[in-house]
Design a protein around this nucleic acid. Sequence first.
DNA 1: TTTCTTGCAAAGAGTTTGCAGCTTC
DNA 2: GAAGCTGCAAACTCTTTGCAAGAAA
Lengths: 149, 149
Amino acid sequence: MESRLDRIKKQLHSQSYKLTPQREATVRVLLEHEEDHLSAEDVYLLVKEKSPEIGLATVYRTLELLTELKVVDKINFGDGVSRYDLRTEGAEHFHHHLVCLECGAVDEIQEDLLGDVEKIVEERWNFKIKDHRLTFHGICHRCHEKAES
Amino acid sequence: MESRLDRIKKQLHSQSYKLTPQREATVRVLLEHEEDHLSAEDVYLLVKEKSPEIGLATVYRTLELLTELKVVDKINFGDGVSRYDLRTEGAEHFHHHLVCLECGAVDEIQEDLLGDVEKIVEERWNFKIKDHRLTFHGICHRCHEKAES
DNA sequence: TTTCTTGCAAAGAGTTTGCAGCTTC
DNA sequence: GAAGCTGCAAACTCTTTGCAAGAAA
């Protein structure tokens, strides 16, 4: 059974990038925190727990590399920090986000939802879509329920 | 006939903010470049052409203020700079963007397009939507046509 | 007058880069 | 052994803040 880590390793190798312990540690952290939306600093601190000798610059360089390889997506919720989000394997489209204005939580929507909209945009604006970013800002279900009780 | 500038002035006054020449000059620049997606630095340089004594910090403070008043929206296309986009008057929803990966142009879509999607998200995720950000990355119609010729 | 606002310069935050040394293949 | 990678520190970019002087109501 080939793990996700293995596949990412292969992808690195196939583009003749070396698989260093630092890179592996970084990928592991990303896999272990798939649900989260970690900043470079977050990733750095988590990697440091297990590999204390790693440098912040290496984490930045690794994240940049993984972004290039489309293993992760670099996203920005407007708070001045870039966040890195593992791509869902096999997913054709980048997933969407729900950002709660109250508690700051970020939930993911894996469903596509934009199929029809994309068709309209491609036809009406003659724009060839390669990727998208969709984020809703509002009140999440948890804060919603809390407010009602 | 009340101009758009007048209405923005009133809005400032109604929240007991003072209307300084610097703020007026900044708003004017935004109105004159409604189609563009100016960064703070861009706005600063444009304001400076007519009011050379203005400081960059004032522009940042004014843009922050206008964002608070929902006169402009602060957006981020992932290039490390915040951009400021005048809200379409009367529009209930924030418009969408088409970012061309080839020439870097940013076009706007004023149509809503997300009505159905929002309904689904609100119902299925029990998420109260307050705002959204939708950006498509791809090839714009100009580059498209250029490539074909 | 009193409060708000400005410009400047300095500080801050996040990210990138140069470089010498070390690792991977 | 050559090419690539790393950690460190310094540099850089964008943005925010402290403060004394100035302007608006």
